[in-house]
Every structure is written in structure tokens, then in C-alpha cells.
Design a protein around this nucleic acid. Structure first.
Ligand code: MN
Ligand code: MN
Ligand code: ZN
Ligand code: ZN
Lengths: 146, 146
DNA sequence: TATTATATGAGAATTATTCTCATTTGTCAA
DNA sequence: TTGACAAATGAGAATAATTCTCATATAATA
């Protein structure tokens, strides 16, 4: 079962790469698996440290470049951050974010109504919309209790 | 008229500082004036370079610290960015952003309907809302033409 | 299996941000 | 007005985040 899931992920990923002209390297497979299905919003450093235990030979440089390459080819998104490190988002479904302004935690939420948000008419011609999202800045429970 | 506007701005700013326990320094006045009424979304470096021509004695460190202090005390906002440098927003009115994913340009837009966006019920108790905004990621006209 | 374009890893370079500390200055009370 | 003093400033160093360079390795293909 574990094995089958893994095999399935591999196949999905290989397909992704083929379609985008990316070589299927062990490093990329590792990084992809670390992110697939996650609703985290990690930094490159976070991904690196996460996989480092199991794969100590993958360099930070490769992790970072791979994440950027994945973003470039639509395998994941670069999302808004409030300075500090760049944040990646492996969840490509249309969704919105709750963002704690103190600790930087980002939580997904779904909302059909918000998905239908349209760019104002006056900007429609000028700008080609890539994506859109509601971002709610909050102080999370943990940060409130400090 | 120019003079009166300037005097008025000074008074508003002095009031701001008094209410927040900030000392009114020439550096802070300069930085405040450079931002007041602007709908830009500058980085600290941009603000620094802007005022440097006229005020070559103000250090980058002071500009940066002042912007952070202003953000801390509600004189301006730190807004979402997509990596690179932190972006500030002197426009405190409730508004939304169109953000070019190529050049980083950010344009304000107003929308009554979007202002009424509520945090989903299930999160209301857990998170204290600080602000909320629609962010529309686009490719701007200029970037499209490249 | 040989070719080749692409990817990787190490280290250096660059950019952005924060820290430290000696000095200066705004504020306030006398 | 004039100190006293807490806060602010500026210079430089330190740290964090990102990108670049280039020699080597490797996936894809024919
Ligand atoms: Mn997300
Ligand atoms: Mn704005
Ligand atoms: Zn938090
Ligand atoms: Zn643009």
C-alpha cells in the first residue's frame, strides 16, 4: 500500500516531467514526493531540511532550483509572503489563505464565492489574470496567547 | 499652497507621532512626506534612494527602521510580496491589489463588494482578523509585450 | 553504448535585513 | 531656558536569503 502509493506518485511525476521537458532525476523525485498532497507553504530551506535527514546528498542549491523550476513549469506555485523567505505552495486547487502576521503560518481555506471574484472591468483588457486569491491576515490562536 | 500643504502634512504627522509616543525627528518627517498620499508600494531601498537626492545624510538603516516602526505603529502597512524585498503600503484605506508576477508592480483597486469579505465561520473563533484583501496576480501590459 | 543537452553540487557572490554600539537629539520637567 | 535622559541615528559588521559560476555527473535518445 505504501509502496503502491509511492509508485503511483512516481508515475504522476514522471508524466509531469515528460510533458514539460524536465529530466526525471532522483533529486526531483524526492523533492516532488516531499511536497505532493501537502497543504503546507514551505520555504526552500524548510524543504531542504526536511529531506536532508533521508537524503543528505541533495544540496540546498538543487532543492531551491528545483522548486523554482517546478514553479516555472506549473507543478507548484510561489505564493505571497510578508518578507523573509519565499514561500511555495504545492496545492494548485483554487483556494484562499489565512496568514498569521506574527508567526507566518499560512492555512488554506476553500470558498466557492471567493473563487468567483473577477478582476474589475476597467483592468480586464490591460492585465492578463494568472491567479487570484483572498488573503486574510490574522493573529493565530498560539500567537494571541503570547 | 505648496507651503500650506507641507505645513498641514507636518501637523498631521506630528499628531500621529504624539499619539504613538514617537519622537518627531527630521528623518521621520522626511520619510513620512515621501510616502504620504502615495499609492506606491515601495521597498525600503526604493524609499531610501528616493529621498537620498534631497537628503543625503539620512542613512539606509534609519529609513528601514523608520518604515518598520511606522508599520508597527499603524502609520503604514507591510503588504504581501512574492519574494525579493519587503513592500510597504502607505495607503491605509481598505483596498485590493493587482500584482504583476513578472515585474512586481502592484496597483490598488477599490471594490465595495470585496471589502465585505468575511473570514469563514469555522475560523472566526480561532483567528483574530487584522486585515483582508483580494490579490489578483496578473501579467501587466508592459510585461505582456516583452 | 555513445552522444549531448541538462542537472547537480560546491563555493563564491549578491541582495536583503538585522544587529551593535558610540554618538546625537527630541522631549519634558524643573 | 536648561539639563537629564530615553529614544533615535548612522556606520559598520553580521546574518539571512537568493543567485551565480563552473567543473562534473547523468538522463534521454538514438
Ligand atoms: Mn495554499
Ligand atoms: Mn496598496
Ligand atoms: Zn501565529
Ligand atoms: Zn509587469
Amino acid at each position: 500500500m505504501q509502496k503502491e502509493t509511492s509508485t503511483y506518485l512516481n508515475e504522476v511525476f514522471i508524466q509531469h516531467c515528460r510533458e514539460r521537458g524536465l529530466k526525471v532525476t532522483p533529486q526531483r523525485i524526492t523533492i516532488y514526493k516531499a511536497l505532493a498532497g501537502s497543504t503546507d507553504h514551505p520555504t526552500a530551506d524548510f524543504v531542504y531540511r526536511n529531506i536532508h535527514k533521508e537524503h543528505p546528498n541533495i544540496s540546498f542549491e538543487t532543492v531551491n532550483r528545483t522548486l523554482l523550476k517546478f514553479a516555472e513549469t506549473g507543478i507548484l506555485d510561489v505564493i505571497e509572503s510578508f518578507s523573509g523567505a519565499r514561500r511555495f505552495d504545492p496545492n494548485l486547487d483554487s483556494h484562499h489563505h489565512i496568514h498569521c502576521v506574527q508567526c507566518g503560518m499560512i492555512v488554506d481555506f476553500k470558498d466557492e464565492q471567493f473563487n468567483n471574484i473577477q478582476i474589475p472591468k476597467q483592468f480586464k483588457r490591460e492585465y492578463k489574470v494568472v491567479s487570484k486569491r483572498v488573503v486574510i491576515n490574522v493573529i493565530c490562536e498560539l500567537c494571541q496567547s503570547k
